[in-house]
Structure formats: structure tokens, C-alpha cells
Simulated assay, not measured.
Amino acid sequence: MIYMLLRGMVIGSEAMQIEADAGKNIGDPLLSSSLFLATFFFFAYFWRRIGQTLGMQVWRIRIQNPDGFKVNWSQCLLRFFGAAVSAVCLGLGYLWVLWDKEKLSWHDRFSLSRVVYVPAPPSEKKKKK
């Protein structure tokens, strides 16, 4: 959004409308790069900080190293690209957990990380009873 606002200020909204009508902004490399970086940093920030994105918190799963510590930036990058490869291969990398002895996906293996379940806090266990 910031990129589009800045671009509109530079070339004008009329020029942007003409480009949009002609379909020229579909392959904009700067926009594509910005979206890629924003997506990567969203996931990497949460994986590095607490091991979970917002959705992962709901599902009570977390990303961590095999020794239980938080993943580092290089692991986040490998995991991000590995997940893209898993998806491009028609989801086979995600489905791999069904056949893997350790229940690891391709991006788990690429990044040397694990998805683990987070137990419910004691206060929530009491509410269910």
C-alpha cells in the first residue's frame, strides 16, 4: 500500500489508472519484491519472536529447533522458500508428513526446524471440565 501511494504521488493517479487499465502494473518488479519482503518479514518476525504466527497460536502449534529453542533468521528464510517449493509441487511437501517417520514436511527438513504442539494452559483445561 505504501508503495502504491508513493507511486501515485510520483506519476499521478491518472497515469496509474491508465496503467491499471492496460494491465501494465501486473509485472511490476518493485511491487513484487515489496510484497515478497513484506510476506517474508511477517512470518519471520513471528517465528523468531514467539515461534508462532497468529494463526498458529489458534491451532496451538509452534516452530522451533529440534532442541526446543527459537529458529534463527536463516532458518526462517529456508523455511519460507521451502514452503513455497512445497506448495508449487501441488502441496506434496506439506503432505510429506503423512509418510515421513518423524512427521516432518519438506520445509521442516530444509530449515532444520520442527512444528510442535503447544499444550493448553491449565486455566483452559479447567474451563473444559
Rank of each mutant, 00 (worst) to 15 (best):
S105G: 11
D100Q: 07
A83K: 02
F110I: 13
W47M: 04
F36H: 04
F43Q: 09
W96T: 01
L77P: 04
F42Y: 15
E102K: 10
M56P: 05
P119F: 06
D21W: 03
A87H: 01
W73V: 13
R114F: 07
R48G: 05
F80V: 02
R109W: 02
L77A: 13
S113W: 13
K24V: 00
F43A: 07
D28H: 04
L37F: 14
L31K: 15
F41Y: 13
Y117A: 15
V10Q: 12
G68M: 03
P121S: 08
S74N: 13
R62N: 06
S86G: 08
F81L: 15
E19P: 00
P119Q: 08
R62C: 05
W99A: 11
L98N: 06
Y94I: 03
L54V: 08
V97K: 00
W96V: 00
L92C: 11
V116Q: 03
G93S: 06
W106E: 12
S33I: 02
A84S: 10
L31A: 11
Y45P: 08
G68A: 04
S105N: 11
L31T: 01
W106Y: 12
V115F: 13
P122C: 09
E102V: 00
R60W: 06
D67F: 08
A120E: 14
G68L: 05
A84G: 08
S86A: 15
I2Y: 03
A83W: 04
I50V: 06
L77C: 06
F81G: 10
Y94Q: 07
W73E: 05
R79T: 03
I11K: 04
K101Q: 12
Y94M: 09
S32W: 11
Y45W: 15
G68S: 09
S123Q: 14
W96I: 00
T39W: 13
S123M: 06
Y94G: 08
A84Q: 13
K101W: 01
L92N: 03
K101C: 02
K103E: 02
A87M: 10
S105L: 01
F80G: 03
G27V: 00
M1H: 15
V10P: 00
F69I: 06
S105F: 02
F41I: 09
V115E: 12
L98S: 09
L5G: 04
T53I: 11
L37P: 03
F40A: 01
G23F: 10
K70Y: 00
M56Q: 13
F69Q: 15
F110C: 11
K127D: 01
F69S: 14
P121T: 05
I50R: 08
P121E: 10
S34G: 14
S111K: 04
D67S: 10
K101M: 05
L35I: 12
F80W: 15
